Amino acid sequence: MSNPDQATPPTPDDDHYSPESAPPGNTPAPVDPVQAGSAESTAAEPAEPYVPNPTLDELVCTELARRTALIAAEARAIAHAQARQAEFLVELQCWSEDPQVSSRLHGNPESIRLADVNAATLTEDQARAAFYGRWEDREVARRTIVSETACLLRMHERTVEHLMEQSLWLLSAPATFNALSSGEISYRHATVLIDQMRTLPTEDQEAFEEKVLPDAKRLPVAGSRTGPAGSGKGCTRNPS
C-alpha cells in the first residue's frame, strides 16, 4: 500500500502544478544597466570644493553684537534703577525722622501735639534734637517704614533693613553712586566696594574708593575685591 504522506509531486504538465517561490530576500532584483552606470560615474566624480560664505559670517557677527548690546543696555538700566531705589530708600528714612511724621506714624496723640508745638516754636534743628529724645517715636516710625516696604517688595524685614543701611552708605560715597547710576558698575560691585570701605577709618575711605573704583568698572566682582590695604586679598568681612 502506498503512504498518502508520500504522494508523488505533480508534474509540470499537471494543471495544479506551480513552482515553489524562492525564500524572501534570496531573489536578486533586476539591475538597470543605465542606473548602475550612473551610480558608478557619480562615485568616481570628486566632490565640489567648499566655498565659504563671508556674507553669512558677517551677519552672524553683527547679530551677536546686536543681541549682546541689548543685554548690556538692560544691565545699565537695571543698575540705574537700583541707584534710584537707593535714593528713595534714603529719602524715606529721612522723611520718617521728621518729628511731625514719626509722631503720626507712631499714632500717639501726645507725641503728635508735642511735635506740632515744637515745629511751630523751634527751629528745625531744635525740633529734631527734641525728637531724638523720644526714642519710642523713632523706633515705631522705623519699624513702620520697614514693614511697609517689605510688604510691597515681598521681602523679609531684615532684608529691607539691610537695603536701607546699604543705601545710606552708597549715597555717602558719591563716586560709587554715580558709577552705579550711569551703569558703569553693577549693584553688586557697589555693595562690595562700600562693604570694604566700612572697614576703614573715615579719613581713608575716599582714597580707597578712588583707588578701587576704576577696577570695579572693568573687572568682574571677584576681580575687583581687594583688601583694605590693597594687598589683593578678598575682604571676608560679612556685611552687618
Results as ranks from 00 to 15, higher is better:
I112W: 02
F208R: 06
S103D: 01
L168T: 08
H162D: 02
E165V: 15
P23A: 08
R143V: 11
C235P: 02
F208N: 04
L122I: 01
V31S: 00
P214F: 02
E63D: 06
T149C: 14
T176I: 07
A222T: 07
A7N: 07
Q100D: 04
P24D: 07
A81N: 08
R158P: 09
A79G: 00
P52Y: 04
A39R: 04
E206P: 01
I145K: 03
L180P: 03
R66N: 10
Q6F: 09
L56G: 09
T226V: 13
G183S: 08
D5M: 15
R158G: 08
N118R: 09
S186W: 12
P12H: 12
T68V: 13
A129Q: 07
E74Q: 10
S103P: 00
A44Q: 06
S172A: 12
E206Y: 08
G230V: 01
G107M: 02
P10E: 05
P99I: 01
P24L: 05
H156M: 11
S224Y: 07
K233Y: 08
R113T: 11
N3M: 13
T8P: 11
A175M: 10
S102R: 10
H106D: 06
V51M: 14
V117Y: 14
N238A: 15
S167P: 04
F208H: 08
A77P: 02
T144H: 03
M197L: 14
A75S: 13
N178H: 13
S41W: 07
I185R: 00
E124F: 08
A86F: 06
I112H: 06
S240V: 11
D15R: 09
V34L: 06
D57C: 04
A86R: 00
V212H: 13
S224F: 05
A173L: 03
A207R: 13
L180V: 04
R67E: 10
A79W: 02
A39F: 11
A81T: 13
G227K: 01
R84P: 03
G37F: 02
S38H: 10
G227M: 00
T11G: 13
D195N: 12
P33G: 05
Q35L: 15
A39L: 10
L193G: 02
A69M: 03
N53L: 13
A173W: 03
P33E: 04
W169F: 05
R138C: 09
S182V: 06
P19C: 02
E48D: 07
A29Y: 12
Q82K: 09
H16I: 13
R134Y: 04
R134D: 10
E20Y: 12
P214E: 02
L70G: 15
V34K: 10
S231C: 12
L193T: 00
A119S: 08
R134S: 05
N178S: 14
T68Q: 06
V117H: 14
S181V: 01
D137G: 10
A229G: 14
T149D: 00
I71T: 14
Q100I: 13
T27D: 11
A83E: 08
T202Y: 09
A22L: 15
D13E: 14
S38M: 14
A179I: 03
I78S: 11
L122W: 11
R128H: 15
H189W: 05
T123S: 15
A222I: 10
H156A: 12
S111N: 06
L168G: 09
